[in-house]
Amino acid sequence: MTSTAATTRGPLQVTAKVFSNKRVGDYWHLTLVADGIAERTRPGSFVALAVGGDTSGALLRRAFSIYRVRPAGVYGGTVEIVFSARGRGTQWMARLAAHDPVDVVGPLGRPFALPKEPVGCALVGGGYGSAPLFGLAERLRERKCSVHMVLGAATESRLFGALEAKRAAHSVTVTTEDGSVGIKGVVTDALPALFNRGVEVVYSCGPMGMLKAVTQLALEHGAWTQTAVEEDMACGIGVCMTCVLPVVGDDNVTRMVRSCVEGPVFAGDKVRWDDIGTVPPGTFGAPRSGGR
């Protein structure tokens, strides 16, 4: 008989304890003591939280990019996430207090791919989509890449990590749609200047519309793209088949792929952004009427 999760790869399911839960602008920054997850985490991977406790009527797991991890030391290992309390699950999470238990599965998903050469990288975050970019910035700087962060949001309170970005990156550009801080505009307004400074790789995380716009602009400038997508998930582990989107494979065939196990990070040029929410004609196995 083969072993199950006995290695240091693959996800764990742990009953984490809340270490702290703090308001940051319009968001919440939740730190969980969750042994074993930190050691397995790479930038771009995510955790899936059960919400509402053991007998909750809200069954589906909520997925969040991992913001930061600290391996076990004097205290147990910690995992940090950032979330917006906009639905009933995240509103429950906003009420969590120190020592409360939370069922966490992770780390999940494919992380960001890293360049082999020390190249110029733009890290673009929309709203709290910036969360996974800080760990990524650290990895890239270890590889001697120059790191330029672009953080955008509708308004100042919806930015996350603008101060921290100054420590994490060689340059930081902030954009807000209402001009409350930084450049009045959107993240793509800030990118051309970075391409002029030799950026060859663009990482992005945030709303789908932003990812699409960033990818298009990056491709026009011949840059390589890595996008962390947001799709609604039920399980986070690859069994429910709800978080699919059309992605072109190396064989040039479009497939409906699970963003939880084949993503959440995809090469931006492989995602059929305009066709998300559809099964485009020609997709592998598409389309037929069928049972449920």
């Binding site: 069954l59 799709e231 609604d232 997709t283 196995g285 389309p287």
Partner: peptide, 15 residues
């Protein structure tokens, strides 16, 4: 082989 349907494919309901 089947691609399945378009998204959204899932909606959480009471219990």
């Amino acid at each position: 082989a089947r691609s399945g349907r378009a998204t959204p494919r899932m909606s959480e309901t009471a219990s």
